[in-house]
């Protein structure tokens, strides 16, 4: 704003020129900073400070002497990168990350595929009851994650699930969904059920923003509805697809409530099933807030790198496409 700034009332010294630099003008110059202040204060208080504190915690540890009983037996000392090396060499954290990757590889393609499919179907001319269908698809998103996980957890338990009752009556095989490979399906199913509606709305909204002339032109050229969907709609909503993919990556890396809620139901979910569960266990189960802080920082960094890496890759591809 200050560069290439032009005086609005012509040259200085003219009879109608602005008054000379006075306190009032100085105040006017500081006005932007004044207006910035609330946002800056909020940012520092509720964002920068907590992050800084987490980093500070992650660089310290508690040192106990002897039996550790009585006062003064515990001191907080500088640990350097010890908590980080411990976390990175901890096989549980790595295993958790791998489990979450496997889970994400199931959830993201299925959820976004379904969301795109539903959005395209809703966007066709012949669809009936569009508002009702839209609401029905979106509704699971309104159910809190913990409630959804509890609900599905009960449905997965052979002894109480109506599904298993029906399977039993029909004499069909009854897979154990809370163990081994099927456990990933069971967990993914909860995420897909809950997340598809939200992603569908995002994609659908951007579909509605495409001007009708584009479709008219395509129809005049003899394109079928399927061709319109594949050649026009999908490329034009690519930015929303990228956005939903970006959100989904973050949500996957931070998966916590579904496995935590299913944990009491089965021996197959350990207290360190996902990286975030390990952070929670170390902080609130083992009481080692310093190790937990280091793990949290690592997870945040990995999330940042992965999600922004993806955004960059997606952007450069889009730019290439435009240049062509």
């Amino acid at each position: 704003m200050t560069t290439a700034h032009r005086e609005p009332y012509g040259a200085e010294g003219a009879p109608y020129a602005l008054p000379p630099r006075t306190a009032a003008r100085e105040r006017a110059r500081s006005a932007p900073y004044f207006f910035l202040l609330p946002a800056t204060v909020l940012f520092v208080l509720f964002f920068a400070l907590p992050i800084g504190y987490a980093i500070w915690l992650s660089l310290h540890k508690v040192q106990v002497k002897g039996l550790g009983l009585g006062s003064g037996a515990r001191t907080e000392i500088w640990a350097g990168l010890e908590n980080y090396t411990d976390a990175l060499t901890d096989s549980e954290l790595l295993d958790g990350a791998l489990r979450v990757l496997g889970y994400g590889a199931l959830v993201i393609p299925v959820m976004l595929g379904l969301a795109l499919l539903f959005a395209l179907m809703l966007d066709t001319d012949k669809v009936r009851l569009a508002p009702v269908t839209r609401l029905a698809t979106f509704l699971p998103y309104a159910i809190p994650g913990v409630v959804a996980a509890l609900l599905w957890g009960f449905l997965y338990l052979p002894d109480v699930s109506p599904f298993y009752f029906v399977l039993d009556k029909l004499g069909m095989p009854q897979p154990n969904l809370l163990d081994g490979g099927p456990l990933y399906l069971a967990l993914s199913n909860i995420a897909v059920w809950g997340g598809t509606g939200f992603n569908m709305i995002v994609i659908y909204t951007s579909l509605r923003a495409i001007p009708a002339e584009v479709y008219e032109a395509a129809k005049l050229d003899g394109a079928s509805p399927l061709q319109i969907a594949l050649r026009i709609k999908i490329p034009m909503v690519a930015p929303s697809l990228i956005l939903t993919f970006f959100f989904s990556i973050i949500a996957t890396l931070q998966v916590f409530s579904e496995p935590t809620t299913l944990k009491p139901l089965t021996n197959s979910v350990s207290t360190t099933w996902s990286p975030l569960m390990k952070v929670y266990r170390d902080a609130f189960g083992a009481g080692d807030i310093h190790a937990a802080a280091a793990e949290a920082v690592i997870i945040a960094l990995v999330t940042l790198v992965l999600s922004f890496g993806f955004l960059r890759a997606a952007n450069s591809r889009t730019k290439q496409g435009e240049a062509r």
């Binding site: 052979p158 002894d159 009491p264 089965t266």
Partner: peptide, 13 residues
């Protein structure tokens, strides 16, 4: 059995 306690299946059992 080897299933955990305090969950619906255990209650039912």
């Amino acid at each position: 059995d080897n299933q955990p306690m305090y969950q619906p299946a255990w209650n039912k059992a």
